[in-house]
Design a protein around this nucleic acid. Structure first.
Lengths: 207, 207
DNA sequence: AGTATAAGCTAATGGTTGTTAGCTGTCAAG
DNA sequence: CTTGACAGCTAACAACCATTAGCTTATACT
């Protein structure tokens, strides 16, 4: 990995632990293994490093959501997948999303940084809301709306269903961000949650 | 209000918006209407101001949870209250908790500060988890456990029920912390959530 | 071989930070 | 009236911060 991206990487690590303002450029340089002034051969200011992280994440996120169709686009989710939705499918979906959010190194550190910086400026506020509230909720909502019209699930407000499904995942995610040691406990609770969710919403004759 | 508590108040406001490190003592002093060195007549350091906020909040929280019996104490929740739990009772409980969290000035600013500072040191990590995850969940869990044994609700894992009830509230709370303008939307969704929650878990013959 | 570019370094700069020293006025207690 | 505590102020300081200037070295191209 070249210096320019090593700077981005080290900076993200530090920003995600202490926040932008609490990290000095000397600290970033130290982590990279160079002296502070050398940073300016690659980025023209500290802000510029931060912006670099931001745009790097932006492209990663767009790539990710494009493959998952998780963004707000009106592209229809493939209906064939849902012809055989079982409890295991739901659990796999939930746990999969959870562990991706929690264990993808870049995603995880970026989320922590967003958490710390979310009140600092409007752009970050919007970004956090998009990535961890609106996009997941609208994604899940579309899925449950389909499962409803397919007749596999009981007819119910899809937005509320999405909230029921996603909110526990979100709460446990923020918990594990703070206390990684509690991940096993969180995973167990998450699985129980999805099992009960499925039991509640699944049509009796569909199982 | 005397100067000493005005300092605490102004500092909390600033810390909750920008974080501890991004706020200078001069800024705090400015907000109070005095010069920076005068702060040191009341607190011996910037850290000391922060600690002042912390211990102030600690006592407030303990007072609050004591009256709500929301802490982890083994004191039994009064069973009489639950003899007549209706949908409206649940909604009132949820909306009440939500609006208290969101509109109590001190609670709200302190939560934002905790959100920003939660990764900085272990004490704040623990405090956040306690106040916004463990305590509310165990409180709700105890309630639903009682409602289950009373026969008003379907028998189900009370911990999961607590998660189902509280997690959406938590998600919408953090949303409104970021974007206060979306409170009406959040409130509406919260009410729908609780209505559906009640419909799902309430025993058919009990309604 | 010669040269240009890139990427590191040290030294220095101007601004900001938290904090201290020391002065002034106010006001209640003796 | 004197004294002492209190709460404000200005001036100053040492540490730290982001950033710039200018030097050196190594690699790549002609």
């Amino acid at each position: 990995m070249n210096t320019k991206s090593r700077i981005l990487d080290s900076a993200l690590t530090l920003f995600s632990e202490k926040g932008y303002h609490s990290v000095s450029v000397a600290e970033i340089a130290d982590a990279v293994g160079i002296k502070a002034p050398s940073l300016y051969k690659h980025y023209k200011s500290k802000r510029d490093i931060f912006n670099g992280i931001l745009s790097e994440m932006q492209t990663r996120y767009e790539k990710q959501t494009a493959t998952l169709q998780m963004n707000g686009s009106n592209a229809a989710v493939d209906a064939d997948i849902f012809s055989s939705v079982s409890e295991d499918t739901l659990i796999q979906m939930g746990i999969g999303l959870f562990t991706y959010f929690l264990h993808d190194d870049y995603v995880c550190r970026f989320r922590k940084m967003l958490t710390i910086e979310q009140f600092h400026n409007a752009e970050l506020t919007t970004l956090y809301t998009k990535q961890y509230t609106d996009d997941p909720l609208s994604y899940q909502s579309r899925i449950f709306s389909m499962l409803g019209t397919c007749g596999l699930f009981r007819p119910a407000n899809a937005d509320v269903m999405a909230l029921h499904f996603y909110a526990p995942l979100y709460l446990l995610l923020t918990l594990c961000d703070r206390e990684p040691a509690r991940e096993p406990e969180a995973l167990q609770l998450l699985e129980q949650h999805i099992r009960q969710f499925n039991q509640i919403y699944k049509k009796e004759n569909a199982q």
